[in-house]
């Protein structure tokens, strides 16, 4: 795996970071097969022209794609499947359980569009329950990309340590958080900003907002809040998380996912399981479907997780202690 820890750094699109790296892997190992359900990415052109036997568009048939992946994996193929994350996870939930998990097959489920990536496309395309349901699948490893750099490592990580895996990632461009932290990738979580007394734990691209909030609180209020990004949600690196949160009195979680079942619940479970008594507040999406149409910031404002909402919730919680 070490040799893959220096991915290309000139990506301008998250999908390129994943699929260009996957192309490199597939070029060296012809047992790597990419199935996609009529979902596009620029790098697919390379597969079709250079590795045509290693990529198949299965059409608009996600359930069959998972079953076919199982059959290929039974024959030793190293299979990556790709579609919009909510279709891959919710629609194919039983195929994932029966065809992959029950037989413990190391298929990599790469879903694009977590949270409100497809915000303006409406609630059918929102992926706000996927972590909750995927973590209930035995053997499932869950990786959530933060930027190009950790995403570019994920296909190598998943390939070199075969296990049933769900990788969720955005399309578009996000600022660099991990280029100087590449060696820490196998750890599953990292403290991106140190702090005192309080800590904000987050996952996925909302991590960028968490850093902005923490910087704002430090500059404007003198509140030095740490930020921890958990990019491997399952299995959780409990030993490291326990060590990192030890100095803090208050823990917050922030996620673009239902506030139950996802990161907040994962951290709550962790705190309970380790009998860690600490003030704790989960910040995420409320129970319900979102019929607000707009860009991500617009939607965050209307659903209650814009930066000012998050800061208000943090303020109130700190005052209530």
């Amino acid at each position: 795996m070490k040799k893959f820890l220096k991915p290309h750094t000139a990506y301008t699109e998250m999908r390129d970071a994943f699929f260009e790296e996957l192309f490199q892997i597939a070029s060296h190992d012809h047992d790597v097969i990419l199935l996609h359900a009529d979902q596009g990415a620029y790098a697919f052109q390379k597969f079709y022209s250079s590795l045509p036997k290693q990529i198949i568009n299965v059409g608009v048939a996600e359930q069959n794609m998972i079953s076919v992946a199982a059959g290929l994996a039974l024959s030793g193929k190293k299979v990556f499947v790709h579609a919009i994350s909510t279709f891959l996870t919710l629609r194919c939930y039983e195929q994932i359980k029966v065809d992959l998990s029950i037989m413990n097959l190391p298929v990599i489920i790469a879903g694009i569009g977590p949270g409100f990536t497809y915000g303006a496309d409406g609630p059918t395309h929102h992926s706000n329950q996927d972590i909750a349901i995927m973590r209930a699948i035995p053997h499932m490893r869950i990786l959530n990309a933060t930027d190009f750099f950790n995403l570019a490592v994920f296909p190598h990580f998943a390939y070199s340590k075969p296990q049933l895996t769900y990788i969720r990632f955005e399309k578009g461009n996000f600022p660099d958080l991990y280029s100087s932290r590449m060696d820490s990738i196998p750890d599953g979580l990292v403290m991106l900003k140190p702090g005192k007394k309080s800590c904000l734990i987050t996952t996925g691209t909302i991590t960028h907002k968490a850093i902005d909030i923490a910087n704002y609180l430090k500059d404007k209020r003198g509140l030095d809040m740490a930020v921890i990004d958990i990019y491997q949600l399952k299995p959780l690196n409990e030993k490291l998380l326990k060590k990192l949160i030890k100095p803090f009195e208050v823990v917050f979680t922030l996620e673009e996912h239902l506030s139950y079942g996802g990161l907040g619940t994962i951290v709550a479970d962790f705190l309970v399981d380790h009998s860690i008594k600490i003030d704790f507040l989960r910040i995420g999406l409320p129970d319900g479907h979102c019929f607000i149409y707009g860009d991500r910031n617009y939607m965050h404002k209307h659903i209650g997780i814009a930066s000012n909402h998050v800061i208000r919730k943090i303020d109130r919680f700190l005052k209530s202690r």
């Binding site: 076919v68 992946a69 059959g71 030793g76 193929k77």
Partner: peptide
């Protein structure tokens, strides 16, 4: 409803 898709994957691998 699962076996045919799995069978497709096995046949494809062959």
């Amino acid at each position: 409803g699962h076996g045919l898709g799995i069978g497709c994957g096995l046949a494809l691998s062959a």
